[in-house]
């Protein structure tokens, strides 16, 4: 077989290494030639304006979307071989919440790999799912029909499903979009706890004011990679200006990049 980048130890250990990734709709590229390597054990954000290709980047990395060029490696191997290391939380709005299923049913979907077709869902599967639900504070909703949940509760259920997968890398698409403050806090706590356990997390994030509080690494994306690296080094006035162009006023940017301690004092 052809030589590959796996020989590079940084790439081989990285939960997700993307090189030269281009995805297009027709002749319109959604993301163009993006390079991005996630350090193990990091909590990373992908940040950029609407239409910057954030969700597309995730979908292309997971092989859900066809890529025009580029390479994606999960722990140094193609995704298809390594998918058991990865849990994916799609955008909440991408599914039909009117589906006839209970909260517990959805979380049990995260155990898909552990169940062969002839096996019924057993006690221990349900216990595992309940445990995941309690980690997101939703255990009392287990029997609830999913259509009856609020947006924040739906997002927690999705997170619980990802927890059930016991993955090393969890990829979340806009986990904080349209959720209440309590849910946002709960989700951040779960993410930080996972990081404590040495897991790696990658979120598409749209709220610039919380990037510094929640994340340690960041990818600024606007079709191209603008900057990537530790939040302290890369989440600056200059990179934000370049990412968002005129969509953010200088005052807004100043407020965003100010260290979080300053905002707390204010």
């Amino acid at each position: 077989m052809k030589a590959s980048r796996i020989e590079d130890p940084v790439i081989a250990e990285s939960p997700l290494a993307i090189h030269g990734l281009t995805v297009s709709y027709g002749q319109k590229p959604v993301i163009y030639s993006v390079d991005f390597v996630i350090p193990p054990g990091s909590l990373s954000a992908i940040v950029g304006p609407n239409g910057a290709g954030k969700s597309t980047l995730l979908k292309a990395a997971l092989g859900i979307k066809r890529r025009l060029s580029g390479e994606v490696l999960v722990y140094g191997e193609p995704y298809a071989k390594q998918s058991h290391h990865v849990a994916y939380v799609p955008q909440r709005s991408s599914v039909d919440w009117d589906f006839p299923a209970t909260v517990l049913d959805v979380v049990v979907m995260g155990l898909f790999r552990d169940l062969r077709w002839w096996q019924l869902t057993r006690r221990r599967h349900r216990d595992k799912a309940m445990e995941c639900l309690s980690r997101v504070g939703m255990e009392s909703f287990a029997k609830r029909q999913i259509g009856q949940l609020s947006g924040g509760q739906q997002q927690r259920v999705f997170l619980a499903r990802a927890l059930a997968q016991s993955a090393d890398l969890t990829i979340l698409d806009e986990p904080f979009a349209g959720v209440d403050a309590a849910t946002e806090k709960a989700i951040v706590e779960v993410l930080k706890a996972l990081k404590q356990q040495g897991k790696t997390l990658l979120c598409v994030h749209h709220d610039l004011s919380t990037v510094r509080d929640y994340f340690d690494h960041v990818l600024l994306l606007n079709v191209r990679r603008i900057a990537a690296g530790p939040v302290d080094d890369m989440f600056t006035e200059a990179t934000l200006q370049e990412t968002y162009g005129g969509r953010l006023s200088p005052l807004q940017i100043e407020r965003i990049v100010a260290p979080s301690s300053a905002t707390q004092e204010a």
Binding site: S94, D96, A101, M109
Partner: peptide, 16 residues
Amino acid sequence: RPLVVGSFDSAFAASI
């Protein structure tokens, strides 16, 4: 199971 998961959330189904 694939039918149910795929009907509910095809992006997730593809990822697993």
